[in-house]
């Protein structure tokens, strides 16, 4: 959308870095600043940066994913990890932890997995809203809508 060589070069470079940062933020969240919410926002920033630099069509192609499904799956995933505690007769969402930490990842328990669900929801919701707005033909009549088929980023 913004035809800028600098922006495009940086955006290309930043995509993997931001995505790795997002996962990093998610995993460290339980002990250090970060977490699913922040990680999710960082990840969607990565996609939105592509969108700003190349337009929504390219952004969809760079990370071909159904963000609506990701968001829905996230809510489901988060909710599912509240269920195991019910088996032990404890209330919904009571935390359960593995006894030993897993090397490189850290301690794993249902709250961490719940956080993954939050992460997925935030990524899905934020990215999808941004893409929906950018693809809106009433707002951007020159930009090709999805109905017109996929096109290369506008030069």
């Amino acid at each position: 959308m913004y035809d800028s060589v600098i922006l495009r070069s940086v955006a290309r470079l930043m995509l993997p870095i931001l995505l790795m940062l997002a996962v990093f933020m998610l995993l460290r969240g339980h002990n250090l600043p970060g977490g699913g919410f922040i990680g999710g926002l960082v990840a969607s920033c990565a996609v939105i940066l592509q969108m700003v630099a190349f337009g929504p069509t390219f952004a969809r192609r760079a990370l071909p994913a159904n963000y609506l499904a990701i968001a829905a799956f996230g809510v489901l995933f988060a909710g599912v990890w509240g269920l195991p505690s019910l088996i032990g007769g404890q209330p919904f969402l009571t935390s359960l932890w593995l006894p030993q930490p897993i090397p490189g990842v850290g301690k794993i328990g249902t709250p961490v997995l719940f956080d993954v669900g939050v992460f997925l929801t935030v990524v899905g919701v934020t990215t999808q809203i941004a893409l929906l707005l950018a693809e809106e033909p009433l707002l951007f009549p020159t930009e090709r809508g999805p109905a017109d088929g996929e096109g290369a980023p506008r030069a």
Binding site: G29, H30, N31, L32, P33, G34, G35, G36, F37, G82, F92, L93, S95, W97, K107, G109, P111, V112, F114, D115, V118
Partner: peptide
């Protein structure tokens, strides 16, 4: 909550609901 980050522990555990 088995976590040092109080904000995150509140979000995903104490106030998970």
């Amino acid at each position: 909550g088995k976590g040092h980050n109080v904000v995150n522990v509140i979000l995903v555990d104490f106030r998970g609901f």
